[in-house]
Design a protein around this nucleic acid. Structure first.
Lengths: 340, 340
DNA sequence: CCATTTTATGCAAACGGTTGCATTGGAAAG
DNA sequence: CTTTCCAATGCAACCGTTTGCATAAAATGG
C-alpha cells in the first residue's frame, strides 16, 4: 500500500490531523512543524489519496461536461473543441477535473442523471440540445449546479446559460453585406430548428426589415442537417429568374459548398456575389477567395461557462446568470463589394 | 443529507452489509430479502454514493485521457474526436467515466502525473506526443495501467499502444497512383518529424523503390506545421521544368490547398494530376473533384485503446500489446487515371 | 435423527482523510 | 505574579461502503 497521512504523522511524531492541516494550509501550524512535515512528505514521496479526500469532503472536484452524442458532425464538434479546451483550462486552474459524458438517451438510467444521483461530479455543463425538461427538472429538484452551453429552449430565465449573440451576429453580417451593395441576400442554414439558428434568422430578418421592400423573406434555405446539400441549393438559386447577389452561410462547410456551386455557375466572388459565413475556421482565411466571417469566440464561451459554474458550485445561492458573448465581423475578400 | 445504505438497512430491518450485497449482487441473498431491499431503495430514492464507494473499493472507475494541449490545430482535433467518442463509449459500457486532461508542461507538478499519484484515475490513455521518457518512467515505476495512442517514439516494444498502419497506408496509396498511370508522385506533409509522418514516408518510399528509377525521392515536402503552406508549395512545384503528376497529402487541409493551387495553375484533376489524401473527412467526398482517400478508422483506434486499457486495469499482468489498424483505400474521382 | 455442509445474514473493522472540540504551554495583560 | 488569551497540536468521531469472519438456520446426507 502507498504511504498515507498516518505514516507521515508517525515519522514526524505528530498527529494525522496536524499533517492534514499542513496539507490544506487552513490552520495555524508552527513553521518548525510545518517544515518538518513537508520534508517528510517529500522524502517519503507522499501524495494525498484523492479518493479518501473527496470522500471526506463530500466533493468530487470534478465537473461533468455533457456532449450531445447524436451530433455526429465532426466539423461542428471540431468547433466545439475550443470550448472544451477553455472549460478544461478554467476548471483545472480551480482544482477541478473534467469528466466527459456522451448523452445517450437509450439507457434506462441515463448517464447524465447518474452523474448527479451518484455524486460523480460537483456540477455539470450541458449543451442546450441536452437541456430537456426532464433533465432540467432533475437538476433543479436536486439543487444541482449546472450551466447550459447555448441558449436553452426552456426555462430561459430560470437557468444559467452562456451563448453567442447570434442574432446580433447575423444582423451585423447582413448590414455589412447591404452596405457593400449586395441587395438580395440568401441565408443558408444547416438546420433551422435549433435555437441558435432561430436567433440567427431573427437577426437576419431584423437587418432586412430596415431596408425598404428589397428583401425577400423566403430567402432562407435549410439544408436539413446535411451541409453538402448547400451545393444543390445554391445551384438552384442561380437557375431562377431573379438570382441573389449574396449568401450568408451558417457554417464553413456550407460556405465551402456554396463556393463550389458558385464556381460551377461561373459566378465571381465578390464582384457578382458576396459570400459570408459564421464560424471563423482557421482555414476560412485560405479559401478561395478568403472568406468574410462572423467570428464566434468559442473559447470565451467555454471559459464563461466554466467560471460561472464554479462560482455556483462554491456558492450555493449564486444567482442564475445569462451571458451573451459578442460576435466579431472579420472582413476579407469575399464581401469586398459588388461591381456596379 | 441524502439517504444512505444505513437508512435502507434500518427501514428493511437488515444489516447495511446485506444491502450492500444486494447492490453488488455478489453474494447469496434470499429472494425475499432482496426484493424487500430493492423495493425500499426505490421508494426512498436511494442512490449509492460513489465517493464512498470508490473510496472503499480503492478505485475511481475513471480513466484519464490526455490531450496534447500544444496541438492547437482544430482540424486534427476534429479528427481526434472520433477516437474520443469511441473511447467514451467503450469505457462507459464498462462502467468507467472519462476524465480529460490537457497536458500542460508548464506547471511544477504536471497534471498528468497528478492523476496518477493522487489516484484520480485507474488508468490513462495518452497520445504519443505526450509519451515522454519522464512520464513513461513514472507510469512504469508505479505500475500504472496506460496505453499510448499512436506509435510512441520510445519504448515501442515495452509499452502498449495502438496505431494506424500508416506505412502500409501510404504504400497502398502510392501503388494505386502508380497503377493509374501517375509517375512522379509528390508527398506533402504537414510536419515530417512525427512518428506517424515518418511511417507514412517509409511506406511512400517503399512503394516507389519497387519502380525502376522513375521516382525522385526529393519529392517530399514539409509544410512546417502550417497546412496552408501547401498552396505555395504546390504552385512552385508546377513552375519547375519537370512537374509532378500526382500529389499525396497527409491530411485534408493540405489537400484543400493543393486543389486550390492546381486550380490556380489550371491543372485538371485527375486528367493531368492525381490527388490523394489521408483522413477521410466527411467532406472530402464533396470536394472538387471528390477526393480519393486513405481512410483512417479513428473510431476503431479509440475503441481498441479503451478496451485494451480496461483489460489491463482489470488484470494487472495483462501483457503489453501493440495493435495496428489497417487503413482502407477509398477511390473517388481525383485519381481516376491520367490521360495518356 | 444426528452430523455435516450450505445458505443467509450480522458484526465490526477498515479504507484515508477531515474537523470540532479539548488541551497545553507560553505570551500578553493587568 | 496571577489571570487571560491565543497559538499549536492532539484526540476521536465521522464520511458511506465493502468485506472477512462469525454465526444461526436450513438443507443435505448417511
Amino acid at each position: 500500500m502507498a504511504v498515507t497521512i498516518k505514516d507521515i504523522a508517525k515519522h514526524v511524531g505528530v498527529a494525522p490531523s496536524t499533517v492534514s492541516r499542513v496539507i490544506n494550509g487552513n490552520a495555524a501550524i508552527s513553521k518548525e512543524t510545518k517544515d518538518k512535515i513537508i520534508k517528510v512528505m517529500k522524502d517519503m514521496d507522499y501524495h494525498p489519496n484523492s479518493l479518501a479526500r473527496n470522500f471526506a469532503n463530500g466533493s468530487t472536484y470534478a465537473i461533468g461536461l455533457v456532449i450531445d452524442a447524436s451530433d455526429d458532425n465532426t466539423f461542428s464538434n471540431a468547433f466545439f473543441n475550443r470550448s472544451v479546451y477553455a472549460i478544461e483550462t478554467v476548471i483545472q486552474q480551480n482544482g477541478y477535473n473534467l469528466l466527459i459524458t456522451n448523452d445517450r438517451e437509450d439507457e434506462k438510467r441515463p448517464s447524465v442523471e447518474k452523474l448527479v444521483f451518484e455524486k460523480k461530479v460537483d456540477g455539470i455543463i450541458l449543451p442546450s440540445s441536452s437541456a430537456t425538461p426532464k433533465l432540467i427538472g432533475v437538476l433543479k429538484k436536486n439543487n444541482f449546479p449546472f450551466i447550459v452551453l447555448g441558449e436553452p429552449e426552456i426555462e430561459k430565465d430560470e437557468t444559467s446559460w452562456v451563448d453567442v449573440n447570434n442574432a446580433l451576429g447575423s444582423e451585423t453580417a447582413v448590414k455589412h453585406l447591404l452596405q457593400n451593395g449586395y441587395k438580395r441576400i440568401v441565408f443558408i442554414l444547416e438546420n433551422r430548428t435549433t435555437v441558435f439558428a432561430k436567433n440567427r434568422v431573427e437577426g437576419y430578418e431584423r437587418a432586412l426589415s430596415e431596408v425598404e421592400g428589397e428583401a425577400r423573406l423566403d430567402d432562407i434555405k435549410d439544408c436539413d442537417g446535411k451541409a453538402e446539400n448547400a451545393f444543390e441549393i445554391t445551384k438552384k438559386l442561380f437557375e431562377q429568374a431573379e438570382t441573389p447577389d449574396a449568401i450568408l452561410c451558417s457554417n464553413n462547410v456550407i460556405a465551402y459548398q456554396v463556393l463550389r456551386a458558385l464556381r460551377a455557375c461561373s459566378k465571381s466572388i465578390p464582384d457578382e456575389v458576396g459570400v459570408m459565413t459564421f464560424d471563423n475556421y482557421p482555414f476560412s482565411e485560405f479559401m478561395d477567395p478568403p472568406l468574410s466571417v462572423v467570428d464566434v469566440d468559442t473559447f470565451r464561451l467555454g471559459e464563461q461557462a466554466a467560471s460561472n459554474l464554479i462560482k455556483k458550485i462554491q456558492n450555493a445561492d449564486y444567482e442564475n446568470q445569462q451571458t451573451v458573448i459578442a460576435t466579431k465581423l472579420i472582413i476579407r475578400e469575399s464581401t469586398k463589394g459588388k461591381r456596379k
